[in-house]
């Protein structure tokens, strides 16, 4: 079997392992940020991801419905605060997705991975 054929198969496998839910910038960003902490408030996520209330709310709901996130609501100084945290299922899905990206990146020749000037 030629090297390029193996690369093609690896690329196909890598693409199949990518999680469609985690391909959106806000959803991937939220999961990555939540992976390194216990919980983040909605306003903190909004600030870090630079998203609008409506868009972020919609994206987080999709992750919640998929069982990747859990939300806990509480009152702080009489204001409602939503705390988001990653579920074990979400952590596993993120791990699989990141590993798939790493495998795909490894297939790109070194010159294709050099930094480009901003």
């Amino acid at each position: 079997m030629s090297a390029s054929r193996t690369d093609e198969q690896q690329a196909q496998q890598g693409l199949q392992r990518l999680d469609t839910l985690l391909q959106h910038r806000a959803r991937l960003g939220a999961c990555v940020l939540l992976a390194k902490t216990t919980a983040l408030s909605f306003s903190r996520l909004k600030m870090l991801l630079e998203e609008t209330d409506g868009n972020l709310g919609a994206q987080l709901r999709k992750l919640e419905e998929a069982g990747y996130l859990e939300v806990r609501k509480e009152f702080q100084n009489r204001k409602p605060v939503s705390w988001y945290s990653l579920t074990p299922a979400g952590r596993t899905a993120l791990g699989t997705h990141i590993r798939a990206i790493q495998d795909l990146v490894a297939l790109v020749p070194a010159e294709g991975r050099t930094k480009t000037k901003a």
Partner: peptide
């Protein structure tokens, strides 16, 4: 941590 909106129990 609650004030900053980021809880890190660890």
């Amino acid at each position: 941590q609650k004030k900053t909106g980021e809880i890190n129990r660890e």
